[in-house]
Design a protein around this nucleic acid. Structure first.
Length: 422
RNA sequence: GUGGGCGUAGCUCAAAGGUAGAGCACUUGACUGUGGCUCAAGUGGUUGGGGGUUCGAGUCCCCUCGUCCACCCCA
């Protein structure tokens, strides 16, 4: 074998593609019901789009992007996440129209590229479905996005998904919190891990979710963002919880949820599924009220979610929510002898022309071999053509489940199969 | 980016320096025009790739690629 696929990427094979299509169709249908419209943006963007929105000091930007220069010397980056390109397209194509407060609801299905060390549930190309609601500051819209996501998981048979909820504040209150946090950490900094010493400067919020034992002990006493939210953020968070309660959605408040992208404000949430090992987050999102203005648009509040399809499919498997058995379908044309072969080809063509799945054995093997193949490939019918049938202009139709067969005129075969098909 | 486990037939796995094997799958036959069960035979391998040690390497050493796990991070 001369070639193999690049590290950390997957081929999705015919036997598994049905599960992908099912998940995709489920998401599309939910989006239709929730009134989100599909948007498709390019597979690469100007590098700056990601750098400036996701944040220069995030892991995604500092070490995980697939960045390259095109022949014109432009720096481009493969889609590293879904929100920034969607917002770029929203602004560039004036989707907000004449009404600056119009609520624009978009969804996407897209590959995402991140250069990271692969392991189970983590790949260099993965696929996300996502939804963005742009133009409303209301917490009810946050709840809608969360509800849409949870319904998606539920429809795919994932019953033990948990929702972790937090608020990360806004321009008003977060800087104060960050200073408070730094002030708290400062005296302990020398005992903390290298990463945290770096985070202290570059991304202090991430100090909160360090897994290092010593760091965790120290951070347990740290002030909580939730205690320092400004009035607006606190009210928003309260009302989001009230709405979730109203809609019967369970959640756990977790002040550790920070999210790895800098643009989040107020609401941040994450969905966890059991059985995925270290990579147990199957989706996440939040509000990003400052992002659109930062991209050069008018101040526009928005909220969104991104869900990892690979992980959802793994979680489905772990949960035993995978139903495999495909119903039998189609006709296998069995020909016996040289005379029957051309008639078989003609019959095959007619069957296909009316939309029936039909196949023939181009190797013209024994009846035995043809029937065995028809059986193992899951055909519902065998249409047998041999000398006897040719003489009578008939065909022998065999039911591959019951084994019963009958002789009928060739002219009636198609109508007969179409009736059976219903 | 760091540390560790593993790469042998299409698949799941044996072979502890001495002839590369089994089960399943596949093909053919028993059954000269009938699948599933049974039985028999057969096809199938540069042991991930490259280099080295050795009379001799799937096995030991080095490099490399891939994969899995943990860290990190995320979906």
């Amino acid at each position: 074998m001369l070639y193999q696929r690049p590290r950390g990427v997957n081929d999705i094979l015919p036997e598994e593609v049905g599960r992908w299509q099912q998940a995709e169709a489920t998401f599309r249908d939910l989006c239709r019901v929730y009134n989100y419209e599909e948007i498709r943006t390019p597979i690469f963007e100007q590098t700056d789009l990601f750098v400036r929105t996701v944040g220069e000091n995030t892991d995604i930007v500092s070490k995980e992007m697939y960045t390259f220069e095109d022949r014109g010397g432009r720096s481009l980056t493969l889609r590293a996440e879904g929100t920034a390109p969607t917002i770029r397209a929203y602004l560039e194509n004036h989707l907000q129209g004449q009404d600056p407060e119009r609520l624009v609801k978009l969804y996407y299905l897209s590959p995402i590229f991140r250069y990271d060390r692969p392991q189970a549930g983590r790949y260099r190309q993965h696929h996300q479905v996502g939804a963005e609601a742009i133009g409303s500051p209301r917490p009810e819209v946050d709840a809608e996005i969360i509800q849409l996501s949870l319904t998606f998981f539920e429809r795919l048979g994932l019953e033990e998904v948990t929702l972790l909820l937090n608020s990360v504040g806004c321009q008003q209150c977060r800087p104060q919190y960050v200073s408070a946090l730094q002030e708290f950490v400062q005296p302990h900094l020398h005992q903390m891990c290298e990463d945290c010493q770096r985070r202290y400067e570059t991304n202090p919020l991430r100090l909160l979710d360090c897994k290092n034992e010593t760091c965790r002990q120290i951070m347990q006493q740290a002030p909580s963002m939730l205690d320092m939210l400004c009035d607006e953020c606190a009210t928003h968070f309260d009302r989001l919880q009230q709405t979730l309660d109203l809609l019967g959605i369970d959640y756990t408040i977790d002040p550790q949820i920070v999210r790895g992208l800098d643009y989040y404000t107020k609401t941040a949430f994450e969905f966890m599924a059991p059985g995925l090992g270290a990579q147990d987050s199957i989706g996440g999102g939040g509000r990003y009220d400052e992002l659109i203005e930062q991209c050069g648009g008018p101040p526009t509040p928005a909220v969104g979610v991104g869900i990892g399809l690979e992980r959802v499919l793994i979680a489905q498997q772990v949960a035993g929510a995978v139903e495999e058995v495909q119903p039998r379908q189609g006709v296998f044309v069995v020909t016996i002898g040289e005379q029957a072969w051309p008639e078989g080809l003609k019959l095959l063509t007619k069957l296909r022309a009316v939309g029936l799945k039909a196949e023939i054995d181009y190797r013209q093997r024994s009846v035995r071999a043809q029937l065995r193949y028809a059986d193992s490939e899951g055909y519902q019918w065998a249409a047998i053509l041999g000398e006897d049938e040719l003489k009578q202009q008939s065909v022998t139709l065999r039911d591959m489940v019951s084994g019963q067969q009958e002789s009928l005129p060739q002219s009636e075969l198609i109508t007969r199969l179409q009736v059976e098909d219903e």
